[in-house]
Simulated assay, not measured.
Amino acid sequence: MQAWSVEWPEGLTPEGELWAETIKPLANAVSDVLVTNEMPFGHWHPTRHMFNVDRAREWADIHERGLDALSRLPFRAVISSRPILSKGKLVNEAFALVDGRYEFLHQKHYFPAESGWQEQAWFETERSGFDVAQIAGIKVGTLLCTELMFPEKARWLGRLGADLIAVPRATGLDHRMWRTAASMAAIVSGAYVISSNRVGQHDDASPRFGGGGIIVDTDGNEVGMTARWDPAISVDLDMTLAGAAKSRYPVYVRAPDENPA
């Protein structure tokens, strides 16, 4: 089985010419797993501090439409996230579509609050916890964007037996921290780390997303990174390596009170 990382354009809709062009590199991935970027459809809305319920509803609606498009992709499983309007704010919910069936994975817990990423004003968390799920025959944990910066969460997912940590994200042009964090997440968990990102910019008030989907193996080695000329890359998931990594340093080392979930 292969797992795929992508960089998909800002403002993507789940239909039309841009969608057809975007998914073209993925035509022959029938038995594979795809990790998309964070909330992949529509324009990025939390650019300003003030929450806008109309924009939030529009964003949630396009992702609801997008579920059908994602389920039609030639993958055994698609891992993504979507905004869901609830109680006057949004939740950012990670999910998997397994043979077209929707499975809840995780809701985002940590939200930045700065120019371009005013997520604290737009999002809340309704379902707490960091857990793993059996997806297409492998154990998958999810960290949504900023959560990758907390290696104790990756370590916890490794404790739960994660073979793969999926990291949908929406980040800017500087890849340095994200590449380091992805490698560290793999080192402390003994899991593959697959992250995908947006690319492009909607307008001058919006962030410029930097693409650069990342694949890291179970030893923390970066296997590949997407680019404008190579927007979809994959790795063969070797479950033997993922299992062996759980018994290696530093994964096996336990703190007496370790329970960061």
Rank of each mutant, 00 (worst) to 15 (best):
A69P: 02
A94Q: 00
A185E: 02
A136E: 00
Q120E: 15
W44N: 09
H175L: 12
W156E: 01
R169F: 04
I135H: 04
W122F: 08
T171P: 00
D32P: 05
V167L: 05
D68C: 01
L143D: 01
G137E: 09
G141E: 10
D54K: 14
W229I: 11
F130L: 06
E124N: 09
W19E: 08
A255T: 12
I233W: 06
E15R: 14
D99W: 00
A3I: 04
P207Q: 12
S71Q: 07
A255E: 14
A242Y: 01
R101L: 10
V235W: 01
P40R: 08
H63Q: 11
M149C: 14
W122E: 04
P231S: 08
R208T: 11
G129S: 00
E38R: 13
L90G: 04
T47P: 04
G212W: 01
E126R: 14
W229T: 13
Q2G: 00
F75Y: 00
S247V: 13
T226I: 13
C145E: 04
E17H: 12
I138D: 05
V98G: 06
W117R: 13
A121M: 02
G161P: 09
R159C: 09
H175I: 09
W44F: 15
A261S: 15
L73I: 02
D230W: 09
P14S: 08
D163A: 05
P151A: 10
G100T: 10
F150Q: 13
I23S: 02
F95S: 04
A242D: 03
Y102T: 09
R176Y: 05
G100I: 07
E222N: 01
A186C: 08
G200A: 10
G88R: 02
K87W: 06
I165Q: 04
D257W: 12
K246V: 07
T13S: 09
V78E: 00
F130D: 03
G66A: 14
S247T: 13
D32N: 14
W229K: 14
F51L: 12
A69K: 04
K246Q: 14
K24P: 00
R254D: 15
T146G: 06
Y252W: 13
P207T: 12
G137I: 01
G211I: 02
K108F: 01
V199I: 15
H202Q: 01
V223L: 11
M177W: 06
T125Q: 14
A27I: 05
A94M: 03
D257V: 09
N197G: 06
A261F: 10
D204I: 04
L143Q: 03
H63I: 10
P14A: 08
L144W: 00
A56Y: 02
L148D: 03
S71T: 11
P260V: 13
L26H: 02
F111E: 08
A166H: 03
L90N: 00
G243R: 11
E21D: 13
D230G: 04
W122L: 11
V30W: 10
Q120H: 09
Y192W: 08
L143V: 05
R228S: 10
G224K: 03
L97R: 06
T240L: 11
T47I: 15
E147Y: 07
L237I: 15
L241Q: 13
E103V: 15
I194F: 01
A255Y: 10
K108Q: 15
G220P: 05
H109F: 06
W8F: 15
V199C: 09
Y252C: 05
R76A: 07
V251A: 05
L18S: 11
T47W: 07
E64I: 09
I214D: 02
